[in-house]
Design a protein around this nucleic acid. Structure first.
Lengths: 243, 243
DNA sequence: GAGAACAATGAACACTGTTTAGTGAAAGGG
DNA sequence: CCCTTTCACTAAACAGTGTTCATTGTTCTC
């Protein structure tokens, strides 16, 4: 013994070197364009060497993104301090959007690539999944649950799982569309962040009672109100739409 | 001359055979899994033969999807009869969702794969782009414009291009999320259509004035109303959410 | 019948992810 | 101190990919 520790440390070091090289290539060129040979070449190894650290390319990329799943969850940490569950939801959506737009290639791999129903691959992440403290999806599920408990959503919106997907989809819609079509000439897709924020706002506005929206916007006890524009406009303005 | 017509016809026939083979393979296995050799093998040709009909794999797939872009637009044809622009928007969204869920592999290639800024490739589709009668995006843009003209959206939602993207993103969000994660074990993503419809409804509810929503829901001159749930619930129920 | 046109071929090229046998330098046991 | 085992790493190969190219063989035109 004794040296066994050093050996393990050395192995962990080259593992980290592989991850580092893969990360920068990955961020710059995207998943498909990163080949095992290029990763190896970047650290002056042979492609086959990687296979004594990772079973295959997919697992390498999963290891890479695991850290980013962590930072996505971390980027949402601050919303836990928010009392109001609806505002929590809004803040979560914005953090999610910000993350996606800042790490488009990672986002692409994490949420826009089909991860084949590989049960082996899933087991790897087990322990995290389902735990709201580590799994962003579980966290979203919980916050939606808080909104439901407090009856913050209007009548027909009661399906917990469906509402979770709905909110996720709203945020995902804008960022994924921008990531794939942001550079297309035939669609002038500028200001994705503003668009995403607006969609999040409009979803929350459409799902919460107008009275509540008015209250949140600080328009309590408006005269004629409990009516249309002001309340909505208020919440939207407050949310920084069309800044 | 004379036989030149037959030659052209013969060439068109094998072109069609290629497209047919590619289509079925494509639908069954998806873009990445379809190789030129497999397409060729399916019709007892050599891979190289395809290259005298299509310049490369991408263009083959574009040709394949061009027809489906047509049918997507066609699937939206019936909404032109709808008077109310907001209801038009809702119907368009639903048609879009239906199309995506019925042709997931095509949808994947059309809207979820990055089409590199290849100007050559874009020129091919020119003439269609921008024409609302052939281009679904342009059509959506026009309908959003109608809503704006009639001032159907509440205060801060005035940006024509942004609103177009917002509505597109809402529909895209659910279907693309389902297409990539529909089979994941860690997220029970059932009933995507209902979820998508609900999101479309909630977006429209959040963007149109409550009074209008009430009017559309047939709740004109409700007593206490102009208030919360009923109006929204009405429009949602009418829209078949949580059927 | 000579010559051009041209779709289709087979072989190759440069890649890809992955597997294999083998090398060489350490570590552990006697 | 030597011998064996371990093991990260290499070189070479395999099967697959998209694509290119010289070469067929058939057909049409003159």
């Amino acid at each position: 013994m004794g040296s066994v520790g050093r050996r393990a440390r050395e192995k962990a070091e080259t593992r980290e070197k592989i991850l580092g090289a893969a990360r920068s290539l990955f961020i710059e060129h995207g998943y498909e364009s990163v080949s095992m040979r290029k990763v190896a070449e970047a650290i002056e190894y042979t492609a086959a060497a990687i296979y004594s650290h990772f079973p295959d390319k997919q697992r390498l990329m999963v290891a890479l993104c695991d850290q980013d799943f962590g930072s996505l969850r971390e980027a949402m940490r601050h919303v836990e301090a928010i009392r109001d569950p609806v505002e929590k939801l809004r803040a979560m959506g914005r953090a999610y959007v910000d993350f996606a737009l800042e790490h488009p290639h990672h986002y692409r791999f994490m949420f826009m690539s089909p991860h084949p129903g590989d049960p082996e691959l899933m087991k790897e992440c087990e322990g995290k999944h389902g735990n709201p403290d580590q799994d962003g999806y579980a966290f979203l599920h919980r916050v939606v649950g808080e909104c439901l408990e407090q009856k913050r959503f209007v009548k027909p919106y009661r399906d917990h799982a469906m509402l979770t997907h709905l909110h996720w989809a709203a945020a995902h819609g804008v960022v994924s569309l921008f990531i794939t079509h942001g550079k297309d000439q035939w669609v002038d897709f500028t200001r994705p962040k503003e668009t995403a924020y607006a969609l999040l706002d409009v979803v929350l506005a459409g799902m919460t009672a107008p009275a509540e929206a008015a209250a949140i916007a600080g328009t309590k006890r408006a005269k004629k109100s409990s009516s249309k524009a002001p309340a909505r406009a208020g919440i939207a303005r407050r949310s920084g739409v069309r800044a």
